[in-house]
């Protein structure tokens, strides 16, 4: 499957793309998300200040409201926090960490869940019921509780946060993939592949997997948003990323103590950034679900 061919006229991918583009809300969501992703990636280039170079911070500039000028004559668009850190720069860097943790955990969860789901559906029997039992067990506990348990036992660190997110999320992929693969497993092309004595791995990865992709894409989009929200929640509770690499959740937590004093900007603006990310991903995911779901296409 070469990429130029993927979107050639008349192919299903092209149809899906065209369908997707028909929803202004989804296109807007995608645009906002891409903009945020680019801004996060380019943070060191576009941020007016390196928020973690302590030498650049001036404590005299602490807690300035949005639009104030610094001692050096530079405008803090979104104000500063208690240490005189420019909030706009802190948010750009925070988005990098939030998006990074969310994406990495979603990718790993997707790999683990997809593999186990495919394997369960293809092999069947005891292996399948064992995997599905695990999935049921995992899903019967709320995400926050599982993440809390892992972090309580293993301690706080960015790797453990990612691990916790993967453990929380793999089950959603596994359940979805198995459902899709069960339907595909009984179709003629798989039977034909078996007749040709293709290896199990080849059948699973080259034939079964591509046909299970649509639901994986939909679940994946939604799970990225969920992972970002959960990471923010954990960081807000002080269980997530370390203070030296603050994600949006930690920025919000830092501002929380100043909320009572009316210094709203320290936590409101990182919160707005978080909301933009989550809502834009969900808008894309919502549309993808409508477009890729054959039952609704009739």
């Amino acid at each position: 499957m070469r990429l130029p061919l993927l979107f050639a006229a008349g192919t299903p991918s092209r149809r899906v793309l065209a369908d997707f583009m028909r929803s202004p809300a989804a296109v807007a969501g995608l645009a906002v998300f891409l903009l945020i992703a680019v801004a996060a990636l380019a943070a060191p280039l576009i941020a007016p200040q390196d928020p973690y170079a302590l030498a650049q911070l001036d404590i005299m500039d602490g807690r300035l409201p949005p639009g104030s000028e610094s001692m050096a004559g530079f405008t803090y668009l979104l104000g500063t926090d208690d240490q005189g850190r420019d909030m706009w720069s802190a948010i750009l860097y925070g988005m990098r960490i939030s998006l990074g943790v969310g994406l990495v955990s979603a990718v790993f969860a997707c790999l683990v869940g997809t593999f186990l789901g495919l394997f369960a559906a293809y092999v069947g029997g005891r292996t399948e019921s064992l995997v599905m039992r695990l999935v049921d067990l995992q899903l019967s506990f709320p995400t926050i509780l599982v993440a809390l348990m892992i972090l309580a036992i293993m301690g706080k660190s960015i790797v453990n946060v990612i691990l916790a997110l993967v453990i929380v999320e793999w089950a959603y992929y596994a359940r979805t993939v198995r459902g899709a693969a069960l339907v595909e497993r009984n179709k003629e092309y798989i039977e034909a592949g078996r007749g040709l004595r293709l290896s199990g791995a080849r059948l699973m990865l080259r034939h079964l997997l591509p046909n299970c992709l649509p639901p994986i894409i939909v679940i994946g989009t939604m799970q990225i948003a969920r992972a970002i929200a959960l990471e923010a929640t954990l960081s807000f509770l002080g269980l997530g990323v370390p203070i030296t690499e603050p994600s949006l959740g930690l920025l919000i937590a830092n501002g929380n103590q100043y909320m009572q004093a009316g210094l709203y900007w320290i936590s409101v603006y990182p919160g707005v950034a978080l909301l933009l990310i989550i809502v834009s991903i969900n808008m894309v995911g919502d549309r993808l679900r409508d477009v890729l779901n054959p039952r609704l296409n009739k």
């Binding site: 923010a232 929640t233 959740g249 929380n256 909320m259 009572q260 009316g262 409101v268 809502v279």
Partner: peptide
């Protein structure tokens, strides 16, 4: 209801505090 599903709880809580306790002063936070 979509917003209710996707907004992080802690963020909504902060906004509730900001509006109802800090700005309006109606309820304790």
């Amino acid at each position: 209801s979509v917003l209710g599903f996707s907004l992080p709880t802690f963020w909504v809580g902060l906004m509730l505090i900001m509006v109802f306790s800090v700005r309006l002063g109606w309820l304790p936070s």
